Simulated scan of single mutants.
Amino acid sequence: MKFLEKKWLAPLAISLLLVGCNSEEPAKNDDTETTENAGASEEAGPYTVVDDRGVEVTFEQVPEKIVSLQPSNTEILFELGVGEQIIGATEFDTYPEEALEIERISDSMTINTERVIELQPDVVFAYTVGEETHIEQLENAGLKVFVIKTAATIDDVYGDIEQIAEVLNVEEKADEIVSGIEEQIAAVQEKTASLDVKEKVYFEISPSPDIWSVGSGTFQQELIEAAGVENIYADQQSWFAVSEEDLITRNPEAIITTVNYSEDPKGEILAREGWSNITAVQNEEVYELNADILDRPGPRIGEAIELIASAIYPEIFN
């Protein structure tokens, strides 16, 4: 589902809507091949690309005007070099800086379908959770809607980049981007491979009093593992409410927080009653990392993995 920015919703809703990776969702469609040769040339006739609903979306020509309904897809579009073609985005599309200039046609919960229809985009990149009614309205108005299920894995991110590139006839650029991410991740893992023991880390996505963390089946778990770190809650599934008593018993050696809507997330954690015996708190190994980078399954995932690894293992990155 989608993690946009946590300041606009209650933390749990953010976890479920903005970062994507619900293990209960159906598996991401692997059949991303075109049923016809997608955009053999910019002058080519109709071509068809399959979206993550399994729907074949046919384009008469390569789309020029784009609406993006998810920040991670907006980042992908800019990375593919077609960001200037985006004419509508969500109010949480904050990266790159140029994205701030795009007209806002969606807030955290709703899409201004009337405005989207008025803009007459050639394609709307939507996502799979909570937008069924909007998708139907847009399609009934004759718009091309291409649905991208929010990535649950690193490989899913590569697939998203490739699908979007296929729609826009920039497949070679997608190959470059994926290769660059793979190299970035490999460079991190080359450093962490020398570690004898992985540090035990607690990853917080929502603060006290309603504390939530991430377990297996989440996008964040993929990043944590790729960074050479051990999630103390890898035995849990999806997003879940944390028992403080259980967390204290598990005694993490470091804490990562992506909470970005309180004044001092790190200070709040260090000052929590009853947490003073936790090793991470005693050693002040609490790290506030950029939520937009860690929570968005887009082209910055290599950077996200490096952020985690360099925070936990600064000695091997200096």
Results as ranks from 00 to 15, higher is better:
S23C: 11
E24N: 14
E25L: 15
A27C: 09
A27M: 10
K28L: 13
D30S: 12
D30Y: 12
D31T: 11
D31W: 06
T32S: 08
T32W: 01
E33I: 05
E33C: 09
E33L: 12
T34C: 13
E36M: 05
N37H: 01
A38R: 00
G39W: 00
S41N: 14
E42F: 15
A44R: 07
A44Q: 12
G45F: 11
G45S: 05
G45P: 03
P46V: 06
V49D: 07
D51Y: 03
D52A: 08
R53C: 11
V55P: 00
V57S: 07
F59D: 09
F59W: 03
F59V: 13
E60M: 14
Q61K: 15
V62R: 13
E64D: 13
E64L: 10
K65V: 09
I66A: 01
V67D: 08
S68F: 02
Q70L: 14
N73M: 10
N73H: 13
T74G: 05
I76C: 00
L77A: 02
E79K: 04
E79F: 03
L80I: 03
G81R: 08
G83I: 04
E84Q: 08
Q85R: 10
I87M: 12
I87G: 12
G88W: 03
G88P: 15
A89N: 05
E91R: 12
E91N: 14
F92H: 13
T94F: 15
T94A: 11
Y95S: 15
Y95R: 14
P96R: 07
P96F: 00
L100C: 09
E101P: 03
I102L: 10
E103K: 06
I105Q: 00
I105A: 09
I105R: 08
S106D: 04
D107H: 07
S108D: 14
M109A: 14
